[in-house]
Design a protein around this nucleic acid. Sequence first.
DNA 1: CATCAATAATTGATATATCAACAATTATTT
DNA 2: AAATAATTGTTGATATATCAATTATTGATG
Lengths: 142, 142
Amino acid sequence: MEKLNDTLLYTLDKCFRTYNQFAQRNVRKAGYDITIDQWLILKSVAENPDITQNDISKIVFKDNASITRIIQLLINAGYLIREIHPSDRRRVNLTLTGSGKKITIDVNEIAIQNRTTALKNINEEAVQQMKNLLQQVIENCK
Amino acid sequence: MEKLNDTLLYTLDKCFRTYNQFAQRNVRKAGYDITIDQWLILKSVAENPDITQNDISKIVFKDNASITRIIQLLINAGYLIREIHPSDRRRVNLTLTGSGKKITIDVNEIAIQNRTTALKNINEEAVQQMKNLLQQVIENCK
DNA sequence: CATCAATAATTGATATATCAACAATTATTT
DNA sequence: AAATAATTGTTGATATATCAATTATTGATG
């Protein structure tokens, strides 16, 4: 039987988890009480002011139900406001609060730094090539 | 602010999830009621008969607590037997049952097929290079 | 316009991830 | 040998993932 750690999925999994834990650790260390996943949602609202939760779920590649619950936590934390959308009562209208805006920007700085560290000694071309390969794998799995 | 989907972490995340969902779907479609994560644990027991739960957690890159709970599910499903280790009463002794052995092998076949599909049109050299890059990222995050 | 289909979001159930606290056992130190 | 430290695993609490069922609303069709 093929050894576990020879597979690409294994390395992918390990890399993603290592990166994610590393990034999360640095955010905590800087004193911010937010997860990377929560920040990604704040960021997608910041970048797309009129976005729906459905679209967020596609962007951050998570289930609709997860988005609802994470957003509830972000509201509890005072980073987001949820209202009924004026032109479509099925939708929600998400707005960043002042502290929501601040933490989105602050954590973004840390995220950029994280990326720099994670990609140390890897040239831009190689990163691009890796992205292309990952994209090809994604296509193959559809 | 940098767009979300330009980042490597994003593509990594997406690729891993897509691959995982794809693999999981194929396992279900073949009629097996087991998750990829559960199968990975069965497989690591099959490959390392005297393994501890601590070591499993390192191999599959998960928390100790998660391993305990997943193993409990595998016991409930009749795939694993847990006993006290004869020479160290702190440890557990994990053994695959007959159906545990069978499903480990069966799902392995599907996993090999999944990998082939996922890596279609990607040559061996590129896969190896991607693994190396991912490994480099892992090192950078330590 | 009444009905049916589609869409947006929520909720429930179960599995898993993570951290911290804990219990049991074994190893080490003095 | 007794005290202390280290190791192995479990449990509790909370967050998240996933699927299915449900509600509310809007859109489409006859």
